[in-house]
Structures are given as C-alpha cells and as structure tokens.
Amino acid sequence: MSNTATENEHDPLIPHGHQQTGRVGDRIFRGFASGAGIFVLVIMGAIGAFLIWKSIPSLQADSTNFFTTTEWFPDDNPAVFGIAALLFGTVISATIAMVLAVPVGIGIALFIAFYAPRPVASTLAFITDLLAAVPSIIFGLWGLAVLMPNMQGTAQWLNDYLGWIPIFDNTLGIYSKSLFIAGVVLAIMVLPTVSAVTREVFIQVPSEHVEGALALGATRWEMVRMAVFPFSLPGMISAAMLGLGRALGETIAVALILSAAFTINWHITEPGGNSFAANIALKWNEAGPIGLSALIASGLVLFLITLVVNMLARWIVSRRKDFSGAN
C-alpha cells in the first residue's frame, strides 16, 4: 500500500511536550487510516483492471461482434458470442422493475414521512426496510414457487386486454419464466432501496417549507407538490438510480426465474430472456477457459454499466447532501 502520510503538517492541537511520543504513533496511525481509505480506491481500480485483463483472451477469440451477437458459444472454434441478448434482458427487466418500484417506493416514503400516524411511523419504516434484509436467493425461490403461479393470471390478462401493445402480446400461450415476472421480483427487491433513500430526502425537507405551503391553504397533497417534490427532486432521481443499479446487477433471483434464452424477444410475458449476472451464474461451471474469459468480459460490461449508474446517482445527490443508502 502506498503511503500518503507525506503531507504531514504540524497539528496545532497537539501540545508540544507530547510531540516525541505522539508524533510517531500519530504518523503510523494516520498511515493506517489513509491506507484503508486508499484501499477502497485501489479495490475499485483493481476490479476494473483485472476484469479487463482477463476478458482480453475471449475478446480476441471472438469471431463475431461482441456487442451485437445474440449467441453464446465462446468455447466453440471459432468462438461465437456477444452480449446483445444479455444487455436486452438486463435492461428490460430492470426497466420493468423501475416502472413498478419508483412510484410505489415514493408512495411508501411519502406515507412514512407525511401520512402515517406519527407514533407508528418509525416502526412502519422498520417493517418496510425488512424487505431489504431478505436475501436474494429467497426472493428467487419465492418468486419461482409462489409469485410465478400467481402472476400467470396477470400476464394472461395483459395479453388478453392489452395484447394490442406489442410487448404484452403473448404468442405462445405460456406465461411463466418471463422477463415480466423477473421484473416484478426485481421491483420488490429494489423497493426498500428506493423508499429508504427517498424517505431520507423527504425527512430533510425543511418544515418551514411544509408549513409555508400549509399556511397558504394547501391541502396535504398540494403541500407535497408545492414544498416536498421540488425540494426533493434530485434525491428522488438519485434513489431511483440506486435502485436501478441494484436491479441491473441482481443475479440469483433472476437466474432462478428466467428460462435462460439467447434471444431478443420483445414479448415480455413469454418465457425466455437473460441477464448479465444470471448468465454468469448459470454458465460458470460449464465454461472452458475462453468461456470463463467471455463471462468475465460480460461481467466487465455489467460492472461499467452499474458504475456509471451509481456514479451518476451519487453525483446528483452529492450536490445537495450526503445520502448513503448503505444501510
């Protein structure tokens, strides 16, 4: 680890008599602390670097376009594989999750911050946060065994009554293992992220603005629109993007629910679809050397996408205030 304790100015808070013993200890301790801080940067850099390094063999071996191919035969000779289908499935399932989770998450946050009876509000917040503690493997199992049979009717209804919208049209008559169901499970999984971060932002709305709106004769909803939403907009966008980052990178639940297929199928209620993360988990143990490298390459793309999404989210909100979302 590199040592950054070089810019060690005199600390005016340390009295002179103790400089002898204090200085050395301080320098060492400070070195450890900075080292730990820099370790975070090093890790983030190393993730990128090692993934790039180890994806090179497969990218060189690929006989087709890595970005537009919808097949995955990296261990064939010549190797044929690309991420188009993965990108499609990842983006579509995450989009479905966002469409469902963002409004509901904002609703929950509003409920807890402004609507719920005060004595129980923090308990209700705790209960909704419990969703965040449920491991994704359990969401996957539940989605597969409990939710999927119950979503059949909804998917069929979408086909029967909204089938004229191409994405809801189901040409197979089979409604299970679809991107739609994966999206619904993802929505439930990112809901606590979206609602917890949004709630933090709502709580920061100064009560002067809330009272200012009410004193003008606004109803509660008008107060929300007048004082809460404009003030919280960056935070809400950021919450949605943090949720999006989660949804894009979720592996196990998606891997369990989708019947992995390397196609781009806009009929989202039909079986099929795939995602970066699910594909890595599913293909990992049957992959040869180039296969592993190809999976690493797809993981690199996923890493970069989530990196951009998360950096944007953090950047938007850091211009206003510190929201961590780490818990």
């Binding site: 002067e208 603005h209 200012g212 003030f231």
Partner: peptide, 13 residues
C-alpha cells in the same frame, strides 16, 4: 394568512 419567523420562500420557485 401567516408569516413565519424565518423567511420561507419556496426555494425552487
């Protein structure tokens, strides 16, 4: 109508 101790114009308006 009411006027508060600290001026509170809506900051985004």
């Amino acid at each position: 109508g009411m006027v508060f101790q600290r001026p509170n114009p809506f900051p985004t308006m």
